[in-house]
Every structure is written in C-alpha cells, then in structure tokens.
Design a protein around this nucleic acid. Sequence first.
DNA 1: CTGAAAGCGCTAACAC
DNA 2: GTGTTAGCGCTTTCAG
Lengths: 341, 341
Amino acid sequence: MEKQPTIKDVARLCGTSVSTVSRVLNNHPDVSQCMRRQVLEMVEHIRYVPNSSARSTVKAKSEAIAVITRGIGNPFFCQIIKTIQPAINKRQYSCILHEVASNQDEMRAACLLAREKKPRGILFLGGRFNYTPEETSLLSMPFVCCTYTNAFGCLDASAYSSVTIDDSRTAFQAVIELCKRGHRRIAVLLNEKEDHSIGELRYKGYRAALADYGIPFDPDLVECAHGFDMDKAYRATRRLLNRSGRFTALFAISDTMGIAAMKALREAGRQVPADCSVIAIDGVEFSQYFVPTLTTLEQPSEKMAQESVRILANLIEGKTGNQHVVMTAMLRPGGSVKPLA
Amino acid sequence: MEKQPTIKDVARLCGTSVSTVSRVLNNHPDVSQCMRRQVLEMVEHIRYVPNSSARSTVKAKSEAIAVITRGIGNPFFCQIIKTIQPAINKRQYSCILHEVASNQDEMRAACLLAREKKPRGILFLGGRFNYTPEETSLLSMPFVCCTYTNAFGCLDASAYSSVTIDDSRTAFQAVIELCKRGHRRIAVLLNEKEDHSIGELRYKGYRAALADYGIPFDPDLVECAHGFDMDKAYRATRRLLNRSGRFTALFAISDTMGIAAMKALREAGRQVPADCSVIAIDGVEFSQYFVPTLTTLEQPSEKMAQESVRILANLIEGKTGNQHVVMTAMLRPGGSVKPLA
DNA sequence: CTGAAAGCGCTAACAC
DNA sequence: GTGTTAGCGCTTTCAG
C-alpha cells in the first residue's frame, strides 16, 4: 500500500515544474515537444494518474455527468443504462451512476449530489412528473428527464429537457390493437390509477381507446399492483381473476407486469392468447423469449439513451437550450394477441 | 445558476471561523452547544452541502467504496447491485458504481479508478479468474471478488477476498439432477470451454457429473455461445439442434442462457420438459415466470451481496484480514426437468 | 472552546 | 516555453 505518485513526483522526476506537467496533462499547446514526450514517458513509467478530486476542487466543477435512477432493478432501465454509459464517456465526461432507494425522492438526491460532487449536468432515468420550479432552481444545473416529463407539474418547458414516448398515446395504441381485433372486455394492469406519473398517463390512454371504440368503461376490469414488481403484478392479476374473470384481453403498462400477468392467467387455466390476449409497453429483450412471445410496444431505448446524452451535453456546452423530444414506440408483434373468435 | 455556498459562507454568516464550522460538520466534540446549534441552523438555512471533492483532496482518501461491474445488463448482477448499494450506504460509505465495457479489463479499470477517485476499497462484481500479484499490488487497496475467485491465477489467498458459490460443484449438482432422472444424453450450453473463468469451471462440473454416472463424454453435445447474451445462447442452441438433436436434457450455465435455449428448443418442435429437460444456474427472479418455470440452482444473491460488503468494510477498517466465503446454491425446482420416460 | 495558518493535489494566471 | 504564485474548499495541527 505505498503512497501513490502525485504531479509533484512527476515534475521532480522530470526536473521540471508542476505547471509544465499540468500543461502536458491538459493538452495545452505551449510545451516543447521534447518536454512533453519526457513527461508523458514518466507518467507512464510511474503510472501516475491525476487525482480527480483535486482536479474538480480547483475547476469548481467536475467533468462528470450524474445519472440518477430508481430503476436498476428494472430491465428497461438497465437497457438504457447500458448505452448511456458509453455515450457519456464518448463525449469526454465521466459518469456518476446513482441509484436512489425507492423511499427516497430523486430530486432531493440530485440536489445533494449536485452540491457534493458538482457534476456538470444530471440525467434522470425515471422520476416524478411533478417537479416544482423551486426544486429545480435549487438544482441549478441542466438536467434531462429520460422516459418522463413534467406533465403533472408546473415547470416551464424551457426549464428542463426530456426524452420520452407519448405514454398516453402509446397506451392508446396498445389498447387499440386489442379493440381492432374485436376485444371489448379489456382489463388493465397498472401500478396506480392516480400516481401523477406513468401509471396515470397510460391509464388515460387505455380509457381513451375504449371511448374511441364506444366500449363502456368497467371499473371492475382495472387492477392496481401498487408497484412495478413482477411479484406484485402477479398477485394483482390473481386478484383480478378472482374478482372478475370476464375479460378477453389484458393491457399491462409494462413488459414485466405483462409477463407476470401471463403466468397468473395460465395458472388460472386461461391460455394466452387463446383465452386471453395480452399486450404491454416497453419491449425489453427478454420478453421475446417467453411463450408466447409478448406482444408489446417497444420503446426505442437505445435512441432514447443517445438522445438524452446528446441533449445534456449540448446544454452543458451551451450549444442549445432545453429541448423536449418525443419518440415513437413501435408495435413489436408477438404471439400474445389474437382476434376474438 | 447562482454560486453555491461554501464553508466560508457558513462561517461568515455565523460570525465564526471555518475551523469551527468544520468541527461541527465533522462531529468533533470540542464545540460549544450554542455554536454547534447556530452553525447547524445556518447550514440548513442556506442549504450548504460540503463539497466532497475538496474533502477527499485533504483527506487523501474519500469515504467511498467502488463497485466495478461488467454486468449491468446481466439480471443476476442487477439483483446483487440492488442490495449492495444500500448495504454500502448503511455502513456510511458512498458508492461509486462503475460499469466496465466488455472490451475493457476490469482490473485495469479498477487501477485507474483507484488513483483517480481514491476509494477505500473495491468490490468487483464479476471478473477474470486469473489476476497476477503484480496487478493487484498495483491496486494497493483491499478488494473483494463477488461471484468469482482466482482459481486460474497465482494470487495468494491472503491477498484478496472472495464471495462465491462453488461453480464447479454447483454445475455438478445441476447435471446430477438430470442424471438422477435417467438422462444420459445431456447437452451443455456455455460461453466458452476454456475461458479460464466461470465457463470452464462449470464445464468441469458437467464432465465430472457425467463421469460420476459413467456416462461417456460426447463432444458433439457441447455448444459454446461465445458470450452470455440471450441472443447468442439462442443461436448456439440452434446450432446444437442442427448438428445433433439426440439429447434428452440440456444444462445451461446461466438462467438467461437456459431461457434462450428453451425458446430454440420449442421452435424446433421439442417440448420442455416432455422432449427435453433444461436446468441452469443462477436463479434470477424472472425465470420463475417462464413456462415451464426454469429449474435452476439459485445463488443466494442477497446474502452474497451483504457478505461482500461486510468483508470489504471490515478490511477497510482493519478489523479482519482477507476471507474467502463459499456459499451454497440451492435447487429451485421448476417445471423444466422431468425423468426420462 | 476557538481562530489562524498550513497544506491536500491540482490548475491558471502572470511574469520572465 | 517555462517557473512562480495564488488560490479551489476543505481538514487539521497548533496556539491561545
């Protein structure tokens, strides 16, 4: 556990000053070729790596982008994280990945982290839809909401950026796929009806689709899992089946919930899709491996990740102002939906 | 984007010195109750948060534990990460989560990160089984390997810690479950045969089980996916089926690969388990939702996570030396295995 | 109990 | 081109 070398060691060993070493390390132009080579060699030789803390102390801000997520357990977010990280690094930022516990507020966590670590910007992966101007001004740095907007808050659109699909519309489309095939008794499986968040928006899309097809709304076909876990979704579907098995199709607001629902259906003796069609939203990789393959509206996770990072980098570098990008979820047909006999 | 308050602001506003403020912030005893209260109130009021970079600059080490993983896409690792993070925070460390790209070496990444961020210790989540003493001495801080050991390296056991299952033995057990049920033509789906890593160990267990039951080894029943992706496992299984469909059971070295294999089997017209039994290792949550439920040897992911953090914290605090904990994977019976007719 | 002063490793003027 | 100097925000002696 020997002490690790500092910039002073490099300078001393090269018989030069720390400023010169600093210059070559930061690619400043005014250093002689010869000196530059010498320093670089020494850096390599003693395996010197600049201390990032010291660096950010003097620069007053790090070169980091913080990614704040409450979803490392969510395969959809994992897919996004997988492409976000390289994207951030490619733009010469480092990535601080911070998972917030489910009982914590991500905006509060962000404010703390902003002050502690001084990143250049924040990328939220999932979060509340109702930030207030007070909160966000406290954050005082650019941020982009990936996969959600401020639909239930009073934030000015110019105060933040977002990259999303239109949740309500996507849910609408999903349910329309069922209606088109003659289904009229369509159940919905969601986390909460009025979460002022994704559940509420997708629920709205569900109801709009029913209305569009002149199907009367039946509250008995609505089931809340009070969460997104497979386990909770599974139990919710069982409750639904016990209460009212009289539906021919089910719309789940996420792939994982849809998959859990399929299990509950099967166990209740209902074949998918023969006895009940199932459709969901997300398009995570593994739902392609189920039998039947889950029919789902796939969010372009890779594009969303890339775009989020692009926007944030541009904000940080002052190249553009806040933006709101709405992407389109595409139907990924599977085997879990079939026309009503 | 106003400037954020520093310790100086707090001091000035309280009419005291920075050292006093520092003392109350660090819970030093020798501060008057009155002053302490005053400072705390001001901190709260102007929402001051200490700059962690400056802090670690002077302390020469941060209070962080770095978690290095190459598997945020791997649901098994995600399960572990989910419990590692709170465990680290509970012990008053912060967590630096660093995902290494698949083309990077995690030990190299760790050495860089160790110098840049100066964490107190490293928790590797997956990695090579063949570190050298040179590499690890370069790291010069305690580390624990979660889910793997140095089985193919020449590291002294006292030079590192590990928390694992016995890979070879677990694979042995898995295959024995098949043998016990009369299967003799048992295929194996792995990433590589000689990866000097998990693939090799589990492959060894497979062969040992065959030997144990006096079943001749057939190289034709071995298929390498050259990776762990579902997609690769799926294609590998298809290759296997095209070449030699004459097996009655399949052992996949991971749940995700097993699930992908089941799809390929079904598509080839082979029912699981009627025409082919499938068993795997890992026990990730979602494999319980497949039809049939995947029979698997479940790694105690939560316990492994807790134990890894516990060991690392003890190492950091000098309470114990390096340790190697081997946990037991438990059979989680599913519907994918059945006795040979 | 408190404040002044030194210094952590680094960058960025500012001179030469 | 290069070295000197002054900080960045913080903790930690060391005097009082």
